[in-house]
Amino acid sequence: MVGLSAINPQFLYVCAGIFLFAIGLWGTWLHAHYVRKIISLNVMGAGVFLTLIAVAYRGEHLPPDPVPHALVLTGIVVAVSATALALVIIRRLEDATDE
């Protein structure tokens, strides 16, 4: 128990964020199907957002820096807009019969 409390949460979550970023990048790069690329891209984005929020974290007793929180909110909305467009293009491509 005492050993675990020595883990700095900021360190832990920054590492997790970077890991998500890396695996998302890997998936976006290598997947052939675009639905999978989009999922990977969102994992990658989640990684960036997590890193940013972990940087803003200042421990249990201090309020976090609000600026990264605002940036991540903006980022989430932008990501979902792009995801929506991409998914509709994918749907349309699966329907399209002209060649």
Binding site: T28, Y34, L41, M44, V48, A86, I89, A96, D98
Partner: peptide, 30 residues
């Protein structure tokens, strides 16, 4: 046309990938 849709999709994904790399750099700088 199908070719245009496919190009648009790839264009979108490539652009998003570039933006994510850029955003990670911003995180470091901030």
């Amino acid at each position: 046309k199908r070719a245009a849709l496919r190009a648009a999709l790839r264009y979108l994904v490539v652009g998003l990938l570039g933006s994510m790399l850029y955003l990670m750099a911003i995180t470091l700088l901030y």
